[in-house]
Design a protein around this nucleic acid. Structure first.
Lengths: 136, 136
DNA sequence: CTATCTGCAAATAATTTGCATGTAC
DNA sequence: GTACATGCAAATTATTTGCAGATAG
């Protein structure tokens, strides 16, 4: 019923885009992939990304105020969304002790966990420091 | 330029719905509020909820595979989404040490943080235990 | 061969927005 | 009285889906 997934050029191109781009939205994947495969359609991008997510081959990340983004990094990690540049940064927390998969938290049995920050990323922090230095 | 927000029946009704319902979507708020205010429009619900979120009076919660939900609990907490019943549970983590507001994590300066679990909520866990007991 | 994919275009559905009117203060 | 809000309906936008033809295995 499920069916064995087949390998197609389109899937390869989408996965490749996913690895090169930084937490892209489906549309960003679409635009990237289009340069090499002009006939690849939007519908296919959504279908392939959805399929990958269902297989657990990529992670769909739903960040506040943004379209869905896709992440090829499967190890548990958090995401930081920069208030200034919008960039999404992978953050590997030093301590997942209380929020790890399998843990039970207030009666809730955790199978997956996603942590989302918003704030200022290191790039923008550096940039601001440089600007502050100039002003003096 | 910003303008001082005014108190209207509609805003009161929306806020009231938010407190009674459990992490409702905008549409759930709309339907609840409609029973008492049949003329209140969908557009207004979205505008009011968006306004509350902008003022920081409620929290917009963007959970994977769901429309935006709204939470009147402002204290930092995590959300658990039950794989079985879909219910969204508030979870107050025992240790926010490494992910608290203001902390800097891998160069990223945290201003807001959201933690999302998916798994099985305590209600469904209990239900399953009951069913398992019967089977024996 | 045939089950799975793809492209295309039309369909969904949440959310936003423009505008004329209503109303809080 | 004058901003700010609301209702309505149309617009926008991400995502999904139906279907006929293409293709991987």
């Amino acid at each position: 019923m499920a069916g064995v997934p087949r390998n197609t050029k389109q899937k390869q191109a989408v996965y490749d885009a996913l690895c090169r781009l930084d937490h892209p939205t489906a549309t960003e994947v679409y635009e990237y992939v289009r340069s090499a495969h002009p006939t690849l359609s939007r519908g296919t991008v959504f279908r392939v990304l959805g399929g990958f997510a269902a297989e657990g081959r990529v992670r769909r990340v739903t960040l506040e105020g943004s379209d869905a983004r896709f992440d090829h990094t499967l190890a548990p990690h958090a995401h930081g969304r920069c208030r200034l540049c919008g960039r999404v940064t992978d953050i590997f927390l030093p301590d997942y002790a209380s929020i790890a998969r399998g843990a039970i938290c207030g009666g809730f049995q955790i199978e997956e966990c996603d942590v989302e920050f918003s704030g200022i990323c290191s790039e923008c922090n550096k940039k601001q420091m440089r600007e502050d230095a100039k002003e003096e």
